[in-house]
């Protein structure tokens, strides 16, 4: 212990870091060793090449495509809902602001999965509604909930635009709506592109929850698709590969968001 105390702070730091590297290295090496020593078993259970081959092309042409469609519909719907909620939140009329707050709290406070089950299965059953369109019953809860999350982001963006912008626009005779749509919102959205991109990534992952309700073979998204494949083959390979397909989309998106965030920070 005396020996430890006699070291300089910098030296101690170095030693701690070396210890961490060694532990981490041993763990990785051990894991790789175990996998390598039983490679045929591991590969057979988790990464079977012909099973992977069997996923194509549907995993891209149907499953990934549908995941992207659900994401796009949810995001587009969320933007519209979120924009309306954000505009209500900055209204001078208190009841309008409250309505927005209530919506946001309710849709954020109940899990997305519950909304999906409610809107996609329970309500149609109870009320005898039939959704037309391949994606409707998944896209509606995604959009309604995404909107509740985006509302605060959009409002923050609107409020980040200097007051003088609205005043200048109004002093030229523009109405509140005209000033909002052609002066304030374009600036606000530029400010919030990075956080919105992060929300896009979250939403993309959350589309996996719509797998909880049934879709036709043409309507399945990635998670449901690989889950079916797992069941058909009694093998985990499709699920592992499905995870990789998600990463293939989400990593570039998060990197993009990070680059834009950094650029925005520098512009300020």
């Amino acid at each position: 212990m005396n020996w430890w105390r006699s070291l300089s702070r910098r030296r101690r730091g170095e030693i701690i870091r070396i210890v961490i590297y060694v532990i981490f290295g041993l763990l990785v090496a051990g894991l790789v060793g175990v996998i390598a020593s039983r490679w045929d078993i591991v590969q057979d259970a988790l990464l079977k090449p012909d099973l992977i081959k069997g996923l194509f092309p549907e995993i891209i042409t149907i499953a990934l495509k549908n995941t992207i469609i659900f994401t796009a519909l949810g995001f587009g719907g969320g933007l519209i809902v979120g924009l309306i909620l954000a505009l209500m939140k900055i209204s001078p009329y208190a009841p309008i602001r409250w309505m927005s707050t209530v919506y946001i709290e309710v849709f954020r406070g109940i899990p997305l999965l519950v909304w999906i089950l409610l809107i996609g299965a329970a309500l149609p059953l109870a009320l005898g509604i039939r959704f037309t369109g391949l994606y409707t019953k998944g896209a509606i809860p995604l959009g309604l909930v995404a909107g509740a999350y985006m509302a605060e982001t959009i409002r923050a963006g609107i409020e980040a635009v200097p007051r003088g912008q609205m005043e200048a626009a109004r002093s030229l005779g523009m109405s509140y709506g005209q000033a909002m749509s052609s002066i304030i919102l374009p600036q606000a959205f530029r400010i919030i592109i990075p956080p919105l991109t992060n929300e896009l990534v979250l939403l993309l992952k959350d589309t996996s929850l719509v797998s909880a309700v049934g879709f036709t073979a043409q309507g399945v998204e990635l998670t449901r698709f690989v889950r079916n494949a797992v069941q058909d083959n009694a093998n985990a390979t499709p699920m592992i590969f499905g995870g990789m397909v998600y990463l293939f989309v989400t990593i570039p998106l998060t990197q993009l968001a990070r680059v834009m965030e950094r650029r925005a920070a520098r512009a300020r």
């Binding site: 200097p162 003088g164 912008q165 005043e167 200048a168 626009a169 109004r170 002093s171 030229l172 005779g173 523009m174 109405s175 002066i183 600036q187």
Partner: peptide, 17 residues
């Protein structure tokens, strides 16, 4: 809005878009 369109205003801080 009709009043304002006939009155131009110039601000201390320019307020260009």
């Amino acid at each position: 809005d009709d009043v304002r369109r006939n009155i131009g205003m110039v601000f201390q801080r320019f307020n260009l878009f």
